[in-house]
Amino acid sequence: MKILLLGIFYIFSFQFLKAQDAATLVGKLKEKLQQVHDYEATGVLKTDVAFIKAPAGKVIVYYKSPDKISLKRQSGISILPKGGMNVNMASLMSFDYLAIDAGEAVVNGVHTRIIKLLPNDESSELVLSTLYIDPVKILLLKSITTTKSNGTYEMLMTYGKYEQYGLPDKVIFSFNTKDYKIPKGFTLEFNDADKAELEKMKNKKGKVEITYSSYSINKGIPDTIFNK
């Protein structure tokens, strides 16, 4: 009996410690990201969606703590997944959550810890966030976020010269896309699209890729930038 009770106590203690460990790791990452109060980053945006032919273009991304983010194309139009770009790294941890250790995984050759964040508030837009954190450099390498209204998004980060701030050089943002087709009567196009071309565009997950060339960190950004 004593052995059984000891066993149960051991299991619960282990789970508690693991959960605490997960929370500590997320806390460390949060602390690192909180060094950045605001930034203005320049980069190149590439939209890669099965049924959208869009050229890559230069963008400026503005961020202000805790959750203001704005992406502006220097000239032209940016096509972004609805609501998705608001899911930035800081916002992934800006809610009251329960952190659960979910094991380990290798992301881009780096050993990471998988931590699942469950919001404590049931009315939260976020349903579940899975973070893949590099425990040595305290960097978020990958996240999978499920939201109530905009589906599931995946972010894959690559770091370089701004890794001490936890800011990536490259972010690949993946999401699921729906099929697209509109009637010929609407477009007034009588010829069918080239089949080989359509095949090239089929069965792909939507992706938005931002490659950052520079960050201007903690220099102050006026709130008016975020007004649409």
Binding site: I52, K53, S75, G76, I77, Y180, K181, P183, T187, L198
Partner: peptide, 17 residues
């Protein structure tokens, strides 16, 4: 002026300005 976004039967084309 600005980029041109055109809807085709099976896809959308964005042409830089």
């Amino acid at each position: 002026t600005g980029d041109l976004i055109i809807q085709k039967n099976a896809y959308v084309v964005q042409i830089a300005q």
